[in-house]
C-alpha cells in the first residue's frame, strides 16, 4: 500500500480552498475575510508541496516560500487598509462599504 496518494493531498487542498472561499464570500467582518484569504493561500501551499514531493523537485517548495512572502505582504497591506477604513468610515462590515456603487 502506497503511503498516501497525491490525489488525496490535492483534494484536501481543494476542500480547504473551498472553505476559505466560502469565508471570503459570506462573512461580513473584513478581518475574517482576510483570515479566509490566508486559508486559501495555504491550500495552494499544500498543493505545491504535495507535487514537489511527487515530482521530487524542490521548485514547488521554493514557490511555496514565495506564496508565504506574498501572504505576508498581502496581510500587511490588507490590514493597513482595514485600519484606514475603520478610521474613516467607522465600520469594518464588508457590505456596508459600497463606495464603488457611484
Amino acid at each position: 500500500m502506497p503511503p498516501v496518494p497525491t490525489a488525496h493531498y490535492v483534494f484536501l487542498s481543494a476542500a480547504l480552498f473551498t472553505i476559505g472561499m466560502i469565508g471570503v464570500l459570506t462573512r461580513r467582518n473584513v478581518v475574517i475575510i482576510l483570515i479566509s484569504i490566508e486559508l486559501m493561500l495555504n491550500a495552494v501551499n499544500i498543493n505545491l508541496v504535495a507535487f514537489s514531493n511527487l515530482l521530487q523537485s524542490v521548485n514547488g517548495q521554493a514557490f511555496a516560500i514565495f506564496v508565504i512572502v506574498d501572504a505576508a505582504a498581502e496581510a500587511a497591506v490588507g490590514l493597513g487598509i482595514v485600519i484606514a477604513l475603520f478610521r474613516n468610515k467607522e465600520t469594518i462590515q464588508a457590505d456596508e462599504i459600497d463606495l464603488m456603487k457611484w
Binding site: M21, L25, I33, A94, D95, I97, D98, K101, W102
Partner: peptide, 14 residues
Amino acid sequence: LQTGRVQLYAFSIL
C-alpha cells in the same frame, strides 16, 4: 449588477 459590494463581485467569479 452594480451594487458596489465587493463580495457579490467575487461571487460572480465563483
